[in-house]
Every structure is written in structure tokens, then in C-alpha cells.
Computed example of a mutant assay.
Amino acid sequence: MTAGPLDARTAGAVRGLAARATAADRVAPLSEQPLLWLTDPEPPAVHVCATDASGEVVGYAQADVGAATWVSAELVVDPSRRRTGIGSRLLGRLRSEAAVVPGRTLQVWAHGDLPAARAFAGDAGMVVVRELWRMRLDLTSPRPERPLPQGVRVRPFVPGQDEEAWRRVNSRAFAYHPEQGRMTSNDLRAREAEPWFDPAGFLLAEREGALLGSVWTKVHPSDEGRDDGHAAAVGEIYVVGVDPDAQGLGLGGALTALGLDHLAARGLSSAILYTGAENTVAIRTYTRLGFTKASADVKFGYGTQGSPSGVTMST
């Protein structure tokens, strides 16, 4: 296990590995946060790299160790080296990291809910503990109007000014959420440095100068790497958050509608978002706006370990 940032060469090798897996599976094996944490100077995460005799990275796992009661992980094995025990070995290392704290559980994401991932999890004695829906909307179809609550005004996010206020409201809005509610100032700044970041698509809702909520949009140049048949550029409702004191006003639906209007004005024909399958309130809101379920990611709990020959795990 390695804490802290990977060196540039190793981080590049991991990204290359993820790209090969994406091309083979039509779904990205690592989500945005693990990729950002590859070179983050102080990530609440540890890295495990599996290398062959030539030093090539053929497997990678990352464990989010920022929570006290669970470790959330993602892993990927080179398509040409699968079914050789590398995945089991990575899983074993992840289990060891989780066991450092007595009672802490291991949970592993499988993006796209692919049959091979299901089989791997089943062989390891793992079961589904969470499901994340990917929902899609046709932006060219008419959408119902969702007016803002009385007295609420919306403006774009101002970098260098609004970070802390936004982060406080985000933490309150997602206090229940295992990932979003833990977003730090470093996490926010890392996203501001990404090529896709556009403050014009990051809208803040205020009343009498107090921040009530926000909608943050993102544009993907291509939707390739997914298994739902879409390859054109796509917009995303990246984050919609409403302060608990402002909930019940219809602000979440109104902000989502404004985010969709922004994406449509950019000439995009479709939009996506992610939401937990257990969040029935959000799903009802998004369904009323026209979203439908397109695919799902699943998180598995429990695990086992194995040990392939000829492969080295860096620690």
C-alpha cells in the first residue's frame, strides 16, 4: 500500500491501464475522484499497483480510507491479464487495509454492473450493498417549467470567492452521503483546475445574500466508454445541493431545470446524472423532469483474496 501521490510515471501508467480497460469494456473502471487522487498530495486514499516482470502496471486498486467504519475501493486489471489471479490479489490487499481498523468493512465499486464483475464478486463471496443509477434525458424534448421560489436569485460561481460558502452548504446538503458530503477544499480546487470546469455552468441560488443551494454542470466532450450506445458530447448535472433549511421549497427541481437549460443552450442534445437507487425523492424529481434510468454502477461488500504468480504488488 502506498499513501500520498503516485509519481508522474506511475500515475500515467495507471491512466493508460484504465484507458485500455475502458476500450475493452465500454465503461470506465475508475471514477473521477480516484483519478484525481492519483497525484493529490494529501489524498485520504492508498494505492496498490500490480506489475509484471517487465515493470508494466497490469493492475491497480485504490482504497478510500477517509471514513472510520468502511473502506470504499475501485480496482482494474489489464484486459490481457484477466483471469490470472491479479484481481483477487488486489482484493486481498484491500481487505488487509480495511482490517487495519477492527470492524471496518470493505466495499468495492463495479462500474457498469458488467457480468464479469458480478462473477468476480460472487466468487469472492461479495454481495451488492449499494446501487448508483445513471439517468439520461433528451434535451431536445420539451421540459416542464420549474420556477424558482420567491425571492431567490441565481448567479454564476466566482472562483476565489465562493469556495468556502459552497463547501459548507454542500457538506450540510450531503451530510448523509458517503462521498459527496466529504468533499474538501482540495477536492474542489482540483476540479476547478480540470479542463472541463466552467463557472458559467456552476449556478448558486441565494436569498438576501445567503446561499441556499446550487447546481453544477459538466460537459463531457464524448460519451464514449459507456455501454448505453451514446458517443456524442453529453452534458451532466454534476451536483445539485440544497441546504437542509431550504428544502421543501422546490429549489432542487428548479435548479436542475436551470442546469438543463444551460446545457441545452450549449447545443447539447442529451444530459446525464447519477443518483443512488435508494434516493427515491431525487429519482421522483428527476423522473418528472424527463430522466430515465440508462445504466447502473454497483458496490459490493465483503471479499476474499488470492495470489497470482509472476506479479508484484508495490507497497
Rank of each mutant, 00 (worst) to 15 (best):
H230W: 09
A210S: 05
G201I: 04
S141W: 11
A68Q: 14
W216G: 01
Y274I: 06
L94Y: 07
Y286N: 12
R15Q: 04
A18F: 00
L249E: 00
A165V: 15
S31A: 15
V129G: 15
R118C: 04
A271K: 01
L90C: 08
L249T: 08
T304Q: 13
P142T: 14
H111Y: 14
H220W: 05
E131N: 05
T140N: 13
A116Q: 07
D243N: 03
F174S: 03
G225Y: 00
A246T: 05
E131Q: 08
L114G: 03
P41V: 01
A175R: 03
G213L: 03
Q62T: 14
G209E: 12
D245E: 12
A13H: 01
G122N: 01
A200L: 14
R155C: 12
E145K: 04
G229N: 09
L148N: 05
L106W: 07
A21M: 03
Q247I: 13
R155W: 01
I237Q: 13
R118K: 12
R172L: 09
W196N: 02
G112T: 08
R136A: 11
A119F: 02
H177A: 08
D123L: 10
I237Y: 00
A282S: 08
R15W: 02
P144L: 02
R143M: 07
L188E: 04
A110Q: 10
S80W: 12
G241C: 07
S270K: 10
R167Q: 14
Q247T: 13
A67C: 10
R288M: 11
V240R: 03
D261M: 02
G59K: 14
G59H: 04
S80C: 11
F197A: 07
